[in-house]
Design a protein around this nucleic acid. Structure first.
Lengths: 227, 227
DNA sequence: GCAAATTAATGATTTATTCAAG
DNA sequence: CTTGAATAAATCATTAATTTGC
């Protein structure tokens, strides 16, 4: 209610844009959730490309309903089945890591990795995908969560228990004690390293793509530092 | 380039391990807090993780970050060298939005958009790229920042406005009073819409699931506007 | 033994905070 | 000071081990 005031404005603004194609990557073979972890049924990536007429209504309010791929030009048949459009994956299941994946990730974590950048995430994902379906975001989130929860676990420990017996090193990271808490930042974690996470697109030009074109294939969070 | 090293690692170690699946898919999430340290009983059979031929160093790009792996040697070397997370992009600067871009973004914001998902970001980026160099992350960050700063501006306003000269008793920042807060999300913003940003898969699985009744109680308003 | 209810763990998102470019 | 960029904290949401009742 109240969002319609914009749409005509916007429409006029960039309606001249030709239909842009965006790749809706759907890789959800829906693992049968076998207890057997050596299930290698994944790796079935079906890339379907849709052409969008860029309708601002669906643009602004995706949550009100499925994004309609109303093609202004009915070139292809493509029956716009209302709910089956995205139901290609029954039950959006979240990533369920296998033991091997967890093992590798923990190993990397113990090795000191905390916030991998795009390149690293890509590599890790490539490796872990051998043991099960996984995406880059899973790796990213895993590190985020693991780091945070290790930290909070440690904090809880140090709070519940007495003072940590360490302290030989007067490090004084100047950690800006939040709320007077003694925030013990993980020593292995370098303070505030700004690793770019974003961008696979910049990544590609490093990998071996000479296209300067902005064709964000994998959009999301991951970006290397432009170098 | 560096991927070859990794892949050898993984291959060399895990790939030949079919016995990794020992019936237990995952560590029990409900751990009764075993006092013994051998918590990883499940993976105990394959606890050769520390003897990997895998070289973490090859995995962790030294150029990208200060990530240092603590060697088996637990020396307290403590790397205070920040390593400067920022490599000061040679020519790469941060996104400098043009007037048109800002205009469109603000229009979208006023139209109700708050947290665009991947598709939307992609589309927006495609459009805005006509007016200047831009990436998906810029759009994403813009919405994040704009939303947050609008909110904080509003909050500051409402707090400052209540500054009546006659009665110094403002509404004490009664944090426990939830619900009808004045400075919460603006009315056009759907309460907690769960838009997936990462993948396109879960695009509308959350359409009509359940009533979103989260009331977002910010349990920690206790920092009186630091900075 | 099995399946529904519980519950701890954790994957995935959003929000708050911070850093730093200009 | 403004604001793009990034991380940390908080929170939502789902899964699977455990418990419970039969």
């Amino acid at each position: 209610m109240g969002s319609m005031k914009v749409h005509q404005f916007t429409r006029g603004f960039w309606e001249h844009e030709p239909s842009l194609t965006l790749g809706c990557k759907r890789l959800r073979p829906l693992a049968p959730k076998l207890p057997n972890t050596t299930d290698t049924t994944a790796a079935a990536t079906t890339t379907t490309t849709h052409s969008l007429p860029f309708d601002i209504k669906s643009f602004i309010r995706p949550e009100s309903g499925p994004i309609k791929l109303l093609s202004s030009d009915d070139n292809k048949k493509d029956p716009p089945s209302p709910q089956s459009q995205v139901e290609t994956h029954p039950g959006g299941t979240r990533w369920n890591p296998t033991q091997e994946q967890i093992g590798i990730l923990e190993m990397l974590y113990r090795g000191g990795m905390r916030t991998p950048n795009a390149q690293q995430i890509e590599q890790i994902t490539a490796q872990l995908s051998k043991y099960g379906k996984i995406e880059g975001k899973n790796v990213f989130y895993w590190f985020q969560n693991h780091k945070a929860r290790e930290r909070q676990k440690q904090k809880r420990n140090s709070l519940g228990l007495s003072h940590s017996p360490r302290t030989s090193t007067i490090q004084t990271i100047s950690l800006e004690t939040r709320r007077g808490e003694v925030v013990e930042r993980d020593e292995e974690d370098s303070p505030y390293k700004r690793c770019r996470r974003w961008g696979f697109e910049c990544l590609e030009e490093q990998i071996g793509n000479k296209e300067e074109e902005h064709r964000t294939l994998e959009l999301f969070p991951l970006h290397p530092e432009g170098r």
